[in-house]
Simulated scan of single mutants.
Amino acid sequence: MTKYAVEPTGRERTFGEDEIIVSKTDTSGRLLYVNDVFCKVGLYTESELIGQPHSIVRHPEMPRTVFKLLWDTIQKGEEIFAYVKNMAKNGDHYWVLAHVTPSFDAAGRIIGFHSNRRVPDRSALATIEPIYQKLLIEEGRSANRKDGLAAAEQMLAEMLRVQNTEYDRFIFSTLKAA
């Protein structure tokens, strides 16, 4: 099965505050498990998702630099919290507060990743969305994707340096402010 090529609709999907989107992937990000909430919100069946790259739900308005930070962190064996804008099968979007953790075997090797996603607080998104828009603009300024990603990484690092914080602490500060 190939990734669906749909355009964003601009419509937002939501899910209940008591619901959690859960998925597990292998080390390359291919889906091994999805729960019913993942399927319901994303408008996919389980069989359409299993074996696909998790990026099947990637929204084009989501900065690549945030995904790079996420992957760099979990591949080091650390957990991360991140706001993510995902896209359903029909092009609708939905925001999540993702908690992504590596899964380890008995020898301590990373064998995959586990993600729980909750409904983010709307006031936290009011802080996050303008930052993500700036990162997207920065990614698009360069002649090639690699340079754009590096420039946006530098922009995010500088923003965090000015605030004297790390990404996870910044995410938690938006929760406290919310």
Rank of each mutant, 00 (worst) to 15 (best):
V96D: 01
E12D: 03
K3S: 13
D92C: 03
A88N: 02
L69T: 02
E7C: 08
K68Q: 13
P8C: 11
V37G: 03
R145A: 10
T174V: 00
E166Q: 09
V37H: 02
N164L: 07
T174Y: 00
A98M: 05
H59C: 12
V96R: 01
L31C: 09
D105K: 12
T9L: 13
S28R: 14
H99A: 09
R169P: 01
K85Y: 02
L97Y: 04
E48T: 06
E7I: 13
L136A: 11
L160D: 04
Y167R: 04
G10P: 08
A82T: 12
A126Q: 13
T9D: 07
Q75H: 06
N144L: 06
Y167K: 06
H99C: 12
G51V: 09
G148Y: 06
S103H: 08
D121I: 06
N144I: 03
T73Y: 01
I137H: 15
V84I: 15
Y83R: 14
R141E: 14
V22R: 08
P53E: 11
N86I: 05
V41Q: 08
T2D: 12
T2P: 10
S115G: 11
Y44K: 07
S173I: 05
M155C: 01
E166T: 11
D26Y: 08
K134Q: 15
I20M: 13
D72G: 03
D36T: 13
K24N: 06
H59I: 11
E129N: 03
V41R: 04
H99K: 13
